[in-house]
Computed example of a mutant assay.
Amino acid sequence: MTRRLVLTNEAAGHPFRRSLPPPPRARRVRSDDSDWRLFALSFAAFFTCFYSFIF
């Protein structure tokens, strides 16, 4: 039985690491609009700070 935490075989790893469950698989994240979201958030933060300092 091989696990992802052990690189070569079960005898090569530490007993504590072998007792851990395998890590969950990472979900694929859609980052199609992350640039636009970051731009909008940055613009809103700058506008709020600038507006609060002026008025």
Score class of each variant (00 low, 15 high):
5 L>D: 07
6 V>F: 03
6 V>G: 05
6 V>W: 05
7 L>V: 09
7 L>K: 13
9 N>K: 08
9 N>T: 06
9 N>P: 02
11 A>I: 05
11 A>Q: 13
11 A>S: 15
11 A>F: 09
11 A>T: 08
12 A>C: 12
12 A>S: 15
13 G>L: 12
14 H>R: 13
14 H>W: 04
15 P>I: 02
16 F>K: 08
18 R>A: 03
18 R>H: 02
19 S>G: 07
19 S>R: 14
19 S>W: 08
19 S>P: 01
20 L>H: 01
21 P>D: 12
22 P>K: 04
22 P>W: 01
23 P>F: 00
24 P>D: 07
24 P>M: 05
24 P>N: 09
24 P>A: 10
25 R>Y: 00
25 R>M: 02
26 A>M: 04
27 R>W: 01
27 R>F: 04
27 R>G: 03
28 R>P: 02
28 R>Q: 05
28 R>D: 07
29 V>R: 13
29 V>M: 07
30 R>S: 09
30 R>Q: 08
31 S>Q: 15
31 S>N: 14
31 S>W: 12
32 D>A: 14
33 D>M: 12
34 S>N: 09
34 S>M: 11
35 D>E: 11
35 D>V: 14
36 W>P: 02
36 W>L: 14
37 R>Y: 12
37 R>N: 09
38 L>V: 10
38 L>D: 10
39 F>D: 01
39 F>G: 04
40 A>P: 00
